[in-house]
């Protein structure tokens, strides 16, 4: 799926977000390739949601710096000039949302309009982004529901969200998000609120949609087992920074950052997750809060491999550790070379 030679779909550089206080997201840089599924993992408060919402232009009262550049999507064959999302006027951002980048959230019930039928909500989104009317609008709505695996799409159109099960609601939510065929979907813990069997179904659905449509996806999760089930690449966020960014197979075999290792050794295997245990078990200690991140390695207080120098001397920078010919792999650890197995 991933073609590293092509220009990335989304290129985030030095993205920094604050709400008037300390920076919540700090110097975030990563790329999302066309059609790539990237798992964004990290403990609660690491800035996964804030970072994604900032890129989507959905944060209010936030100061956003840096760059998030969205290239021409699959639809335009990458011919369109890239669009800088940070600082884009609200109206132009709105026009991109839904059509180029879309987002789904954890709780599908509260995400849907409780007063409008599923059909009404799908038509609402289609009307916002397409010129479809009448029968064409209707059949597109049906096709979308079929695409997300709803068995009786005609009947579903007439229902209110409250009449659907949790899994069905999330499927409807996904249908809404892909209605205008976006190139990139942010999925913020889309399966966390679902029970385990449904969780697996929704994961399969999302992966299948990517295979079908070539839509890229940023999959936000606490759960490394879920990440391993869906991701092409894993980005680990710690205290507002990227600390490791690696292809999934490399990441799960040979994580380079001590924090990633701690997470992986604490994480249950996929079977355990699907049986109902599976939240990311944090290593001992606590994430420093945004105001107390200091100038040393932010993981130092919890790291088993910490040394006065170089760890506390300065903030390690994100460096590429990919050998020649290997896929993109970066890590933020001053001792990665010594610690490499």
């Amino acid at each position: 799926m991933t073609d590293r030679n092509a220009a990335p779909l989304l290129s985030v550089r030095n993205l920094t977000v604050n709400f008037g206080g300390p920076d919540i997201v700090d110097d975030l840089s990563f790329d999302i390739g066309q059609g790539e599924i990237v798992a964004l993992v990290g403990e609660s408060g690491s800035g996964k949601s804030v970072g994604s919402l900032a890129i989507m232009g959905l944060l209010e009262n936030a100061t956003i710096q840096g760059s998030a550049s969205l290239s021409g999507g699959a639809s335009s064959g990458g011919q369109e000039a890239p669009t800088e999302l940070v600082g884009l006027p609200a109206r132009r951002l709105r026009a991109l949302r839904g059509r180029r980048i879309s987002m789904i959230f954890q709780d599908p019930l509260s995400s849907l309009d409780p007063l409008q039928t599923i059909g009404g909500q799908i038509r609402e989104v289609l009307k916002a982004h397409t010129r479809l009317t009448g029968a064409a609008l209707h059949s597109r709505a049906i096709a979308l529901l079929e695409q997300v695996g709803i068995v009786d799409p005609e009947g579903c159109l007439a229902l209110l969200p409250q009449r659907l099960s949790g899994g069905m609601r999330q499927r409807v939510m996904i249908a809404l998000a892909i209605a205008a065929e976006p190139d990139l979907l942010f999925a913020d813990e889309p399966t966390t609120a679902l029970d385990v069997t449904v969780q697996a179904q929704v994961l399969r659905l999302l992966k299948g949609l990517r295979d079908q449509t070539g839509m890229a996806m940023v999959f936000i999760t606490h759960n490394l087992a879920v990440a391993s089930a869906i991701a092409d690449r894993v980005i680990v966020l710690y205290a507002g920074q990227v600390v490791e960014d690696a292809p999934a197979d490399v990441f799960f075999r040979r994580p380079a950052m001590p924090y990633s290792r701690a997470l992986l050794s604490a994480a249950p295997r996929l079977e355990a997750v699907l049986a109902g245990y599976g939240h990311l078990e944090a290593p001992r200690g606590q994430v420093p809060s945004p105001g107390q991140r200091g100038t040393a390695c932010r993981f130092a207080a919890r790291c088993d491999d910490v040394r006065e120098t170089p760890c506390l001397a300065s903030m390690p920078s994100l460096v590429s550790i990919a050998a020649n010919g290997e896929a993109h792999h970066t890590v933020r650890c001053a001792r990665w070379e010594e610690l490499a197995p």
């Binding site: 989507m56 959905l58 709105r94 026009a95 991109l96 949302r97 839904g98 059509r99 879309s102 987002m103 789904i104 959230f105 709780d107 509260s110 995400s111 849907l112 309009d113 409780p114 007063l115 409008q116 609402e124 989104v125 916002a128 982004h129 939510m173 809404l176 998000a177 209605a179 205008a180």
Partner: peptide, 29 residues
């Protein structure tokens, strides 16, 4: 405060549409 407003924005609905169809309708009921 509900997620539906943020979601409606994420789906690219216009603020006018959201204020009239979601906010006004939901609050007047």
């Amino acid at each position: 405060k509900q997620d539906q407003i943020r979601t409606a924005r994420a789906l690219g609905l216009s603020s006018g549409r959201i204020i009239v169809h979601r906010l006004l309708r939901g609050a007047l009921l």
